[in-house]
Amino acid sequence: MSEIDADAAASQKLRKSERVKRKGNRTSEDGDSAGLGKGRAAAFVAPAMLLIAIFLVFPALWTLYLGLTNYRLTGFAATHPRFVGIDNYVNALTDSRFLNSLGLTLLFVLGSAVIGQSVLGFAIAWMMTRVRKGVKSVVEFFVLLAWIVPSSVSTFLWLALLDRNNGTLNTLFGTGTTAWLLQFPMQSIIVFNTWVGTAFSMLLFSSALGAVPPTQLESSKIAGAGAWAQLRDVIFPHIRSHVLTNTILITLWTFNTFTPYLLTAGGPDHRSEILPVYIYRLALSEGSLGQGSAVSLIMILINLVIALVYLRILREKKS
């Protein structure tokens, strides 16, 4: 889905050639193949654009303004927010809690998305190329299930799994009363997020691996290539763009996920307070909506930068 640029470029090219082809016999200079007409097309697109604009883009831009005020959840500032300039932004960028949160987020994204989900997803997809179809769909089913269980249910399951007293993990491995979420908060949410999100990487890599020509695999095997050489020289060139797409998407999703809050609430002592959790606690638990909005805007900007870098890489690769 984020290959919009590639898509756009490709379809533009296609359309151009089609236009040239058709110029003689029909009036498709404006590319209006269905005879919709500009007015009707605008009417078709307008409701979707309005909904997205009013309830998605406008709120995102509104955080810019809210970040400049001392808006609070309760009290006088809740009804009469005062303009405070860029104080919130300065506070955020110099606050050690923000920097700590940023570092943890980086660790979280690297550990659970770039390494955890990608590597595990690829490993499973790779394995599934060698098993019977039935086994493959059973495995797919369970991986998919972990992904679509509602977050409030799956976090509860993990709370039960990791519980200090009588938790399933402690019972199974005889690890006594290890308080996993207190002693290893980051490790816990990283493993949890890997568990939740592996499905997407696996499915994407599965369909990518299906497109690798089997003859090339055969001939590399005959030429005596080991598994690693085969992976590097035959498979990787074929799935490079998928690796890129996958990495960027799961990076964005993981960067934005709020679910770990339901496991550790950012604690203990801010040790698992990734950015979305930080914003949530700042704005909604502590009531500093203005300060929370300032951090939100910074987060949105980081999102945009990641997306732009991705589009840039994609364009360079295509040209």
Binding site: M1, I4, A60, N256, F258, A283, S296
Partner: peptide, 14 residues
């Protein structure tokens, strides 16, 4: 597409 990438938690307050 850009809009689909906004973090939900950033939109709660507005």
């Amino acid at each position: 597409l850009g809009a689909s990438m906004f973090p939900g938690v950033a939109l709660v307050t507005p």
